[in-house]
Design a binder for these strands. Structure first.
Lengths: 336, 336
DNA sequence: GACAGCTTTGCACACGAGTGCAACACATAG
DNA sequence: CTATGTGTTGCACTCGTGTGCAAAGCTGTC
């Protein structure tokens, strides 16, 4: 395991020399399903172990046209929901003997394109875009190159690319009915300035559902999708002459901020004075201080599906879109 | 940008054919500092653009001995502190024109070794271990292969590997003095069953500092490093006949759990009845409900230093260890 | 012993790129 | 016109691996 001197990686050639066989034999030893006699196989393995040999996946990918690399294009990885998604994806990919390359696309929008270009440089087997909308031209480039492209929570439905998203509208409807059942009538939505498809879908879904039963909805959507924005929304909405008694926050982070401000700055009790529903089911939603009723992201299922998209053999003939349901998690922020 | 027909990536050869030059010319066009006339350079660039050509970094890495890949071995990426570290690292690495490959080592300890082996398969330029202790043998293998190995918040100090950590003992001492200054004398520490060097260092640092001034410390360390564990610690410590009036939680997550239980289950006011200090300065520490006094992880500085370790030319002659200070963040959980 | 059938092995080529070397073109000075 | 120097270009080799093909080896049956 340690009899080498000079630095640098050891190649199959050196292993072959030590084992007294041809380089092909070494290659076949490490290729599942290839024909090697048990005898030489053992000799090769011993030599490889002694020299500390590791197959060079880059060279292998050069010839086998599949590198095992899957690119994850993410911005705001530090966000609770996204980080748990990255966790699930990396784990699942490894189980499928792939490896994740993370491209941080935080910042300017054009960075997304640069990121996907990186993907092409490394001949990834597939690219999963977790945020940001890639340009149409770069999508075409991916398709031409035979790159699989999987978009998460995005609107673009194009032939050849896989799209997986959440049924935000259904969840929003369910939230509305929960509020109605609790006897609430003065509704509000808190969103942020980030007009990503998921957030917009939840906001719009809630407003539309309310309209369909003849109710109006006050809205707040300003600032980043963070705790402070939720608090700002509370300050704005609760100071009105006709403050809401039920608030749908399109994100748990927003909901936490809203609740903090409602409790500490307005002295409101939740759910007695005010019902709140969030979205994502991030960790703190389960903490006793919040005990937030919310919708759970089916992270594991989505990750499984994404991995199956990556490993499946053939491309979808036309636009493929898979919608996941976000199950409601009942806790203590809605009056019953 | 779209005149190709069959799937698959386009090679430099095809670009050369279209541009009417040799493949070498194409190669040189994309190699900074190589000698190409402005005329052919332009012809090549145009052909490359038309065909959608992207340099194959894998093939380039094969010959240039440097792939631009840096492996991040992480477990529990979804944890607030680690996810922000991954965020910072991926961003900084990209700025240094490297790319991060994330290996999820969650689970069994032996997975760390598998993970590092992956690293070797892809001929990464360096490997950053964010959690878990790699085995000594695998470290040796890395060194033999010329792999740079950078350990974060680990104890192992070995020749050839870079070690970067936090000055946990200094922070623990500072926490103790803050408590003493606030008039607290009944001390406690809350940790978890995870005996990682950082957590142990903080716990031990606090206990030692207290002993040196003749004070005893009640401790709780059981369960995972999570909110629930902090709450359990509160239930245990606050139910004693002689409950603490100052608690140092080795992690913000633990501190949040402790505070929630102390407030809601024991009706204690913070900081009037009880002072609390955490560690990490995660996002919620800044939220009004917690306003936790804590120690900030110098994430940006650490990331910068790690990247400089990756890009620096020569290996450290012997064991290299860099200690970062964690500045105290004063908020509202310590009486003044 | 001859022959068929199967397994194992090595040769040689391919993958996609970088680069030393020599040939070449061109400009300038003598 | 020749000699010298400078800047481009292409050939051919290299990196580490997979694999088709044919040769070689082995086994078993008639």
């Amino acid at each position: 395991m340690k009899s080498r001197s000079g630095p640098g990686f050891v190649s199959a050639q050196e292993v072959a020399r030590l084992a007294g066989v041809s380089r092909s034999a070494v290659s076949r030893t490490f290729t599942p399903g290839a024909s090697v006699s048990p005898d030489t196989r053992e000799r090769v393995l011993e030599a490889a172990d002694r020299l500390g040999y590791h197959v060079n996946h880059l060279a292998r990918g050069l010839i086998s046209q599949t590198t095992g690399i899957v690119c994850l294009v993410v911005s705001d990885i530090a966000t609770p929901y996204l980080s748990s998604m990255v966790d699930a994806l990396t784990r699942r990919l490894q189980e499928a003997s792939k490896v994740a390359m993370v491209i941080n696309a935080t910042g300017r929008l054009e960075k997304i394109e640069d990121a996907i270009r990186q993907t092409l440089h490394y001949r990834a087997d597939a690219t999963v875009v977790l945020s940001g909308s890639p340009d149409r031209a770069i999508i075409q480039t991916c398709l031409d190159s035979g790159q699989r492209l999987i978009l998460l929570n995005r609107d673009e439905v194009l032939p050849g690319i896989r799209n997986v998203a959440l049924d935000n509208a259904a969840a929003a409807r369910q939230a509305l009915h929960a509020f109605l059942k609790a006897g609430c009538r003065r509704l509000a939505v808190v969103a942020s300035a980030a007009r990503t498809p998921s957030l917009v879908g939840r906001e719009k879904g809630f407003v539309d559902a309310a309209r369909s039963v003849g109710l109006d909805v006050a809205t707040w959507s300003d600032g980043p999708t963070a705790h402070a924005t939720g608090a700002a929304g509370a300050r704005h909405l609760l100071a009105r002459t006709d403050p809401p008694d039920a608030v749908f926050c399109v994100t748990d982070l927003l909901a936490c901020g809203f609740m903090d401000a409602a409790r500490h700055e307005f002295g409101l009790r939740i759910p007695e004075d005010l019902s709140v529903i969030g979205f994502d089911d991030i960790e703190h939603a389960g903490w006793p201080s919040y005990a937030l009723t919310t919708f759970a992201q089916p992270v594991a299922e989505i990750a499984d599906h994404v991995v199956s998209c990556v490993t499946e053999y053939d491309a979808p003939a036309d636009a493929s879109r898979r919608l996941f349901a976000a199950p409601m998690v009942w806790r203590g922020t809605v009056r019953r």
